[in-house]
Amino acid sequence: MQDFIKALVSEEKNTELPETFNYFGKLIGSWKIDYVESSHSAAIQGEWHFAWVLEGMAVQDVIILPDYEYGTSLRIFNPNTHAWDVAYGYTGKIIRLEARKQGEMIVLTDTNDENRKWVFVKIDDDEFHWQNVTIKENGEWQINAEIYAKRLTNCI
């Protein structure tokens, strides 16, 4: 197992990845999260862990929401499109997204439904805010779920 981890995980971002497109670098580390669906008032407490992988040209994460969902995303920078190709998977489902910056936000758009988006609304050194949204016909954003995160550590 240690050989697999050593082959997968990178200590840092690859210098070939332009800093302009280093959207996810601030997320590297471990986070305590509160996940709140719009239809429920109670938050699910969990963890979200991010690491550089694949020679520092990609970021992989593991999200742990006990008794709800365990999932992983692989975000790979695409130098041809200047966007990030993203695959998120959990039991029985894989979702493909494309990530681009829109102002200060990182917007991940579902490649099968451009009205479905995952948005890192704000990323600071010690906290971030994420939303799962659906774009209505009138252009309004309907928030389906939100995550509020506090950093646990910078270590991977």
Rank of each mutant, 00 (worst) to 15 (best):
105 M>N: 09
123 I>V: 08
74 L>C: 06
103 G>L: 06
79 P>I: 03
50 F>P: 03
66 P>M: 04
21 F>T: 02
65 L>D: 12
129 H>N: 06
61 D>G: 01
16 E>S: 10
13 K>F: 08
46 G>F: 05
58 A>H: 04
17 L>C: 05
25 G>P: 11
121 V>P: 01
10 S>P: 11
70 Y>E: 12
63 I>G: 15
110 D>R: 13
93 K>A: 08
49 H>C: 09
76 I>H: 00
49 H>P: 00
84 W>N: 01
86 V>H: 09
44 I>M: 13
98 E>P: 02
51 A>Q: 13
62 V>K: 06
72 T>F: 14
40 H>M: 15
24 F>H: 07
41 S>R: 15
101 K>D: 05
94 I>E: 11
115 N>R: 10
23 Y>V: 09
89 G>M: 14
114 E>V: 09
45 Q>D: 11
33 I>L: 11
32 K>H: 14
8 L>V: 13
66 P>W: 03
66 P>V: 08
94 I>W: 05
30 S>L: 15
117 K>M: 01
128 F>I: 04
68 Y>S: 05
28 I>Y: 08
96 R>P: 04
19 E>H: 08
26 K>P: 03
113 D>Y: 06
24 F>R: 06
29 G>L: 12
11 E>D: 07
106 I>G: 11
104 E>V: 00
67 D>M: 10
28 I>M: 09
90 Y>G: 02
35 Y>G: 00
13 K>Q: 02
96 R>K: 10
111 T>Q: 14
76 I>A: 05
26 K>R: 11
28 I>R: 01
17 L>R: 00
110 D>V: 04
33 I>E: 11
40 H>L: 14
94 I>F: 05
91 T>V: 06
55 E>N: 13
117 K>R: 12
103 G>P: 02
126 D>C: 10
116 R>H: 13
13 K>P: 01
17 L>D: 00
72 T>R: 14
14 N>T: 06
91 T>S: 15
58 A>K: 02
80 N>C: 02
72 T>D: 07
72 T>G: 12
29 G>W: 14
48 W>C: 08
24 F>G: 08
22 N>D: 14
23 Y>K: 05
87 A>Y: 11
124 D>Y: 01
82 H>T: 12
34 D>S: 15
111 T>H: 04
10 S>T: 07
101 K>M: 08
34 D>F: 03
46 G>C: 09
65 L>H: 11
19 E>F: 05
61 D>L: 03
94 I>M: 03
114 E>F: 02
